[in-house]
Design a protein around this nucleic acid. Structure first.
Length: 580
RNA sequence: GCGCCCGUAGCUCAGGGGAUAGAGUGUUGGCCUCCGAAGCCAAAGGUCGCGCGUUCGAUUCGCGCCGGGCGCGCCA
């Protein structure tokens, strides 16, 4: 709706521009949404940009443009303001129409097929099975899933992939750690590995291993398989509790098994971008912007971690994913150059056509968890870090997801558990959910109190969802300031999706929802919805239904539930000592 | 030292070449006979880290400082 109006207005300005300055390109024309209502619905600053080249004052240019502006059914009036802005005010009907658009589109409102079904892979979490997921993984899970949803909303076919490293020596470390605990339990001499894993879960796994039949503490292979399976299962449970699903799990070991790693090394050598020194094989990553060259194959014959990573990304490309977004912690940002360098070396030699910026990365900063005014650094289960499960248990899934996605990825995030808990009243996610519940409640009351009166006019096919019945309501009565503000926000929702998707920044959606909820609460407190004036009542209900739809769609995108009822504590004014 | 990122209200953070820089929280003061007070309204709170440049216009872009985070392994 808003996009429709925008392109219509751009067309009007383009025609005016062609008349007064034919040599100027129409691409100069931009339309802004003014922050202040008094500046109209759209604002065009082009006159100020043209002033210099036309050698006239900005206001003179604006005057000429205004005179040449064609009339339109949607435009109430256009006027010059400030230093030379042309502000456009729309007719009420143009703004009200969005309600109908939303109710007709329902859960599809905000979706588009702009991406035309392009295949995209979003790889995220990708935690090694050496311990429980930590809060950083939680941020990745919330971000990655929301980014995937954003892409889907824009018409991409998204594959969510989890890559896990089951071949490195940290797995060996895990196995040795568990073995050491197992031997302790059996009363045998044991030597705990120097950089082993110290969390309580290691002991638990050791105990489970020993209890699971006639197990041999010397069978390191069996221990490794058992431990990895246990931790993978635990991670899956955590992700399920978090509401995040993956389409595919990709094993690092498979890259060795199917020969991809060897082929990648061969390709890199063939590319001429490698050299040998000190008994090791190096990749000339400096040819691709790195500050030093990197070892690919160590003198002991094993590969450094980024070699399988390059092989993995060649595989992604060959699997048909020509757009890939990797969500990782920014502490991995040094891998970006190396992986891209390896891909370029291979692609150039073999003509694969992999673009220089492939793959995309969204790198997020650290999460610190605050509790009781101090940083929480340990958890019982994992030892040296706070787990995702800790957060979910403390503040719930909805709050955790909303919180973790509500900041720009590249800012450090302080997760204040006390605030998130004590909240219930201040937590933004509850505030948004509350707006949703309030609207549901009003719609329900409308159904029970006015079904006969309004229902006779608007037959309800789905009694539990009055939205259907409101599709044909006359929206003319929506003329209040707060109503226009809501109409604007509702109409801008698709733009918000588009922008958030473009920038790969789901926090924009969180803020959009927060703002819409705020506008609604304000409206709700100022105006009565279920009033006796039937036409106005119906129009307001339709607006509320549209707002609810947007809230529901946005929350769904973020993986947060949109309840029709919120848990309610004791009645108001029932504080201790004030009762009868 | 080098590379990437961040400095915006007391605190946690949005925004971003455009008009008077915004929310939440905290502080202060008002709102329930009535659709959910888990809410609303109002007040107060700012040299947008500092400086120079780019231009009609810089909080936004560029460069240089200052402060903070992360990375800089034949670890992953």
């Amino acid at each position: 709706m808003s996009a429709e109006i925008r392109s219509h207005l751009t067309g009007l300005f383009a025609r005016a521009l062609a008349q007064i300055a034919p040599q100027q390109p129409a691409s100069l024309i931009t339309l802004e949404r003014p922050k202040q209502a008094q500046h109209g619905d759209f604002s065009c600053p082009v006159a100020m940009q043209l002033a210099k080249s036309l050698k006239r004052s900005p206001r003179e240019v604006a005057q000429a443009l205004l005179a040449a502006l064609p009339a339109s059914d949607w435009v109430e009036r256009a006027e010059i303001a400030g230093p030379g802005f042309i502000n456009v005010r729309l007719r009420p009907a143009a703004k009200q129409h969005v309600v109908r658009t939303v109710l007709a589109a329902g859960e599809r409102y905000g979706r588009s097929d702009a991406a035309g079904g392009e295949r995209v892979m979003v790889e995220f979490v990708s935690a090694n099975p050496t311990g429980p997921l930590h809060v950083g993984h939680g941020r990745q899970a919330a971000l990655g899933d929301a980014i995937s949803a954003l892409l889907e909303w824009r018409g991409s076919r998204v594959t969510r992939e989890f890559y896990y490293n089951d071949a490195g020596n940290q797995i060996e470390n895990l196995a040795l750690s568990v073995q050491a605990r197992a031997r302790e339990r059996l009363g045998l001499a044991s030597e705990f590995p120097a950089d082993g894993y110290h969390g309580e879960y290691i002991g638990e796994i050791a105990a489970k291993y020993l209890a699971s039949g006639a197990r041999d503490a010397e069978d390191l292979d069996a221990i490794r398989r058992f431990a990895v399976a246990e931790l993978r299962a635990e991670q899956d449970r955590d992700l399920q509790a978090f509401g995040v699903r993956f389409d595919n799990y990709y094993l690092e070991s498979s890259l060795y098994a199917d020969g991809r790693v060897e082929r990648t090394v061969k390709s890199l050598v063939d590319s001429g971008e490698t050299f040998e020194r000190d008994g090791a094989l190096w990749l000339k990553t400096t040819d691709y912007g790195d500050d030093k060259d990197r070892v690919m194959r160590k003198s002991d014959g094993t590969y450094t971690y980024f070699v399988p990573d390059v092989a993995y990304h060649v595989a992604k490309w060959e699997r048909g994913f020509h757009r890939v977004i990797n969500v990782q912690g920014s502490d991995h940002h040094s891998t970006v150059v190396r992986v891209r360098a390896g891909l370029q070396a291979i692609s150039e030699k073999q003509g694969l056509g992999i673009p220089a910026g492939y793959p995309d990365y969204v790198l997020h900063k650290m999460v610190t968890v605050m509790k009781g005014g101090a940083e929480m650094k340990i958890s019982k289960r994992a030892g040296s870090y706070v787990t995702l499960r800790d957060l979910i248990d403390e503040v719930g899934r909805d709050a955790t997801r909303f919180f973790l996605v509500s900041r720009k990825p590249d800012t450090e995030f302080v997760f204040d558990v006390d605030l998130a808990k004590s909240q219930s009243e201040e937590n933004p996610v509850y505030y948004v959910q509350m707006a949703h519940a309030r609207i549901s409640s009003v719609l329900e009351q409308w159904r029970t109190q006015f079904a006969v009166e309004d229902g006779s006019l608007f037959p309800t096919s789905a009694p539990n969802d009055p939205s259907d019945a409101l599709n044909d309501v006359d929206l003319g009565p929506l003329t209040g300031e707060r109503e226009f503000a809501l109409l604007k926000s509702v109409g801008d929702f698709p733009d918000a999706i588009e922008a958030a998707c473009q920038d790969l920044e789901p926090h924009q959606i969180a803020f959009t929802l927060r703002e819409l909820a705020g506008q609604f609460h304000s409206y709700y407190n100022a105006e009565r919805i279920l009033i006796s004036d039937a036409p106005l009542r119906r129009a307001r209900l339709a607006l509320c239904a549209a707002v609810r739809q947007v809230l529901r769609n946005g929350l769904g995108l973020l993986g947060v539930s949109a309840p029709n009822k919120m848990m309610r504590e004791d009645a108001p004014f029932s504080a201790p000592g004030t009762g009868p």
